[in-house]
Amino acid sequence: MMQLSSVYYRTNREQQAIRNAGKWCQMAAVLVLLLCNLSRTALADDSQRTKAIVTEVCAACHNLDGNSIDPTFPKLAGRNPDYLVRELKVFISGQRKSDLMGPIVATLNTDDLRPLAEYFSAQKPTSGQIKDVKAAEIGRKLFQNGDESRDIPACAGCHNIDASGNSRFPRLAGQHREYLIAQLNNFKNDVRNYSSARLMRELTKRMSDEEIAAVADYLNGL
């Protein structure tokens, strides 16, 4: 079993490392949640409980402040809490498939999803570095205007002009280039095949690989 989003970019060794990290997170998650549940009364308040889950379960990949270091893991800082809860739920239901996230989210309590989403949403998002200035300019045009000749809508229509997102569509500004490319390809190749992702599946099929990379470069720099 291999995480599908990683097909394009990871060597076997990296994949092994990620799988190990995933297992470690999973074990940690079970342990922490067990402890949290046992000592529920002992914890002063829910924010401490949330912080504990963040520290032990999420931070290894997404970082404490939600700005992940590894570009294959998404930044969560500043993303809309409604959106984050929705995605956590599609991970839990198995609609959004991930060998990594699947076992981890399975350990989460439904009651914890909202506070976790609120925590990451409240973190300050960071910007990335544009890798290819020329490509980023092509990406900017496509993101802001789309391409009418091929019925590619402006991404800004849903994700906002500044890519800050909203409750229905995620923030993309500053997101890792690698992660964006992987996810756009997951849409294009029908890996993210749940019904609510139909729109993205359709429109990524209208985009070339170069355009996907260009949009990712632009967004990373925001």
Partner: peptide
């Protein structure tokens, strides 16, 4: 708010596009 999903093509303010697409 619901129009967000339309304005990528129909533009903000629903002006349509210059090309007439």
């Amino acid at each position: 708010e619901s129009f967000q999903v339309c304005q990528g093509c129909h533009k903000r303010g629903a002006t349509g596009s210059a090309s007439g697409a």
